[in-house]
């Protein structure tokens, strides 16, 4: 600082290292808003359920595939775990990062594809978004989450591409992870609320 050049005897303030890098903080705030968004959807669903006369799920509607989705849930959680280990390897500068990140991405992709197949089957059974409260809320909640998974999937692909070109730094990787952990973490809650 040029103030020093004046030779004045006061201490020159130093710019402090931020507690969290800008990207991570911004992403955390965004994720907080997203959590509230999903809280709103879940609240709406709870109220929607409570209005059903004759119990929930409404009689005469197709059953949701609970067991198959459990497998899918496991796949998504495994993707989150893989990303966690990818980050640890990345911090060490380990070459395993690439493989772990790829596993995480593939599992995420598997989740989306599997869910798409599930949807096709359900639509075949007559559960559509306009067929009643069950269909409406099912596609709303799960569909919104699916959109987030796709967005996270694209973000992870982007980080993977950067990793291949060797210009991935933690200021890109860290926010991407925050988003993916959110996507992974909110799913069990939705599974519990919607399917069980």
């Amino acid at each position: 600082m040029p103030d020093d050049a004046l030779g004045l005897p006061y201490s020159v303030p130093a710019r402090r290292e931020p507690v969290l890098p800008n990207g991570v903080l911004g992403m955390l705030i965004f994720v907080a808003t997203e959590i509230m968004f999903f809280s709103g959807l879940i609240s709406a669903f709870v109220i929607g359920k409570s209005n059903a006369i004759g119990g929930w799920p409404p009689p005469g509607q197709p059953r949701l595939p609970v067991e198959e989705t459990a497998l899918n849930t496991a796949a998504l959680l495994a993707s989150g775990v893989a990303l966690y280990f990818a980050n640890r390897a990345f911090k060490r500068g380990d070459a395993k990062t690439k493989r772990l990140l790829l596993i995480s991405i593939v599992l995420g992709g598997f989740f989306v594809v599997f869910q798409g197949a599930e949807w096709v089957a359900l639509i075949g059974e007559g559960l559509t978004v306009t067929s009643g409260q069950l269909g409406g809320f099912f596609y709303l909640l799960v569909g919104t989450h699916a959109l987030h998974v796709v967005a996270g999937f694209i973000i992870l692909l982007y980080t993977y591409r950067k990793l291949l070109h060797d210009d991935l730094d933690r200021f890109t990787f860290w926010p991407a992870q925050v988003f993916w952990y959110f996507v992974v973490g909110v799913w069990p809650i939705l599974y519990w609320q919607v399917y069980l």
Partner: peptide, 9 residues
């Protein structure tokens, strides 16, 4: 982080 450089004259 309070050990980090920080002024307050």
């Amino acid at each position: 982080m309070d050990g980090a450089p920080e002024i307050h004259p």
